[in-house]
Design a protein around this nucleic acid. Structure first.
Lengths: 140, 140
DNA sequence: CTGATTGCAAACGGTTTGCAGGCTT
DNA sequence: AAGCCTGCAAACCGTTTGCAATCAG
């Protein structure tokens, strides 16, 4: 379970640099889902000369090599829901296309979430993440 | 079911303008979840003089007044998942804070989604959307 | 008539890129 | 030694804002 950063890098085929190691440790130590700017501010305390570009490059490297994951598979730009029916989404992890999935096709009531008290639920949204038929058949 | 745009505006307390009406009709007619730029390109065919700023202003107005909804409740900036355990999310619709919800606290296997053939599922991600305790207690 | 809405252009904020020098392997 | 990685500054792109002219109620 407790493995060194060197091993982790070897496993993912990426070089071990000081910036990379401090960034990794910092991200692991931060709770929640901080933004790149927030991570940058903390890393800067240990490496004052680090640049924001390096933080971005390495966060992407970590995500691409599978060390971390992206929080949301959705598009980066504003997307609006015009479908007024209750429904959920199928998201393609390759092309990021989002398709609707009618609520009846999912047994959402069965979820029965155990939540901390104080959180007032408005609705439950399910994303079925995978690879769409188009991306599956496309060679690349 | 079939109600006029005038009625819809009256109901939401917003003024009826030509741009607004064409934008609404265009968005309703586009399938999927087009970006503001994509909507703009289509609306421009009917109103060549319309500006992108107007499209943005009105999409926001539609979302604020409840005519449409936002596709994803997540932050606009890049957020990374450092928690390697299988889990889901509780998202506050007010402050957009995201908290983790361990997979065991949700009966996800019970969902049994009915999917179109050709879609290969990687995982199912559940967002429990609501208002967190902090935002609930905060007066504003 | 009054306030809301529009189109424009400039500003903005988060993110990416090109590049010269430095570090890892 | 070869190539990857860093820091910098400029570019980028989606989005927002300020403003004067125009429109809806």
């Amino acid at each position: 379970m407790l493995r060194s950063f060197r091993e982790l890098c070897a496993q993912h085929g990426i070089a071990v640099t000081h910036q990379r190691q401090v960034l990794y440790e910092t991200m692991q130590s931060m709770c929640g889902h901080p933004s790149p700017e927030e991570v940058f501010a903390v890393v800067k305390q240990r490496i004052p000369s680090i640049s924001l570009a390096t933080v971005y490059k390495n966060i992407h490297l970590f995500v691409e090599s599978g060390v971390f994951r992206e929080l949301s598979m959705h598009h980066g730009t504003l997307r609006v829901e015009m479908n007024a029916q209750p429904h959920h989404h199928m998201v393609c992890s390759v092309c990021r296309k989002v398709e609707d999935l009618p609520d009846e096709q999912l047994n959402v009531q069965a979820l029965q979430p155990v939540l901390p008290s104080g959180f007032v639920v408005e609705r439950v949204s399910v994303d079925v993440i995978g690879v769409c038929a188009d991306c599956k058949s496309r060679p690349n």
